[in-house]
Amino acid sequence: MRSIAFLGRGGQGIVFAGEVIAETLFEQGLYVAQLQSYGAEVRGGSVLSYVVFDRDRVENPFIESFSLAIVLHEAGMRRWMKHLEGSDLVILDELVSAELRNAVKLPISRVCVEKGVLGRENVVAIGVIAASGVLDPSVVERVLSRKRGFEKNIEALKLGLELGRDVADRVAAVLRL
């Protein structure tokens, strides 16, 4: 059993990212469970969305740590600090000022600004995971093609694939079943 979590704040497409990951892994033939949790309010409040996956039916989706967590905004962190501390690997956007022993920082939001895909941090993050090979990029593309904003999302996905190259081994190590 492995898991991928996205944390951030309302409006960042955190749930969308969970959906794309769940659908991709499902189409790759795995069993998945996708859950989400909102904080005080959807816009601006903390949001967590995560996917648990396995070769067999997922026994328990109510997990206490993640194989991989990607944090796109500090708002999403405080409530889930224990989860994050216990996780195998945490990727923080470089603007997130937290320090965690198991975290690496990536310039996800900066890439979005510089390459003109504002607001697509979520899809860049998906690309970062896909760079590990755990997600099949062509399946991700197929899943994205069914959703709104396809063209921009594909751009963002490609940026993520590139950005994720440096951490691909570490991501693969925590996600491979």
């Binding site: 959906e19 769940a22 499902f26 069993y31 998945v32 469970a33 996708q34 859950l35 989400q36 039916r57 997922v58 989706p61 109510f62």
Partner: peptide, 9 residues
């Protein structure tokens, strides 16, 4: 609510 909004196979 967990069952209702959680997606699974």
């Amino acid at each position: 609510e967990f069952i209702a909004h959680g997606r699974e196979v």
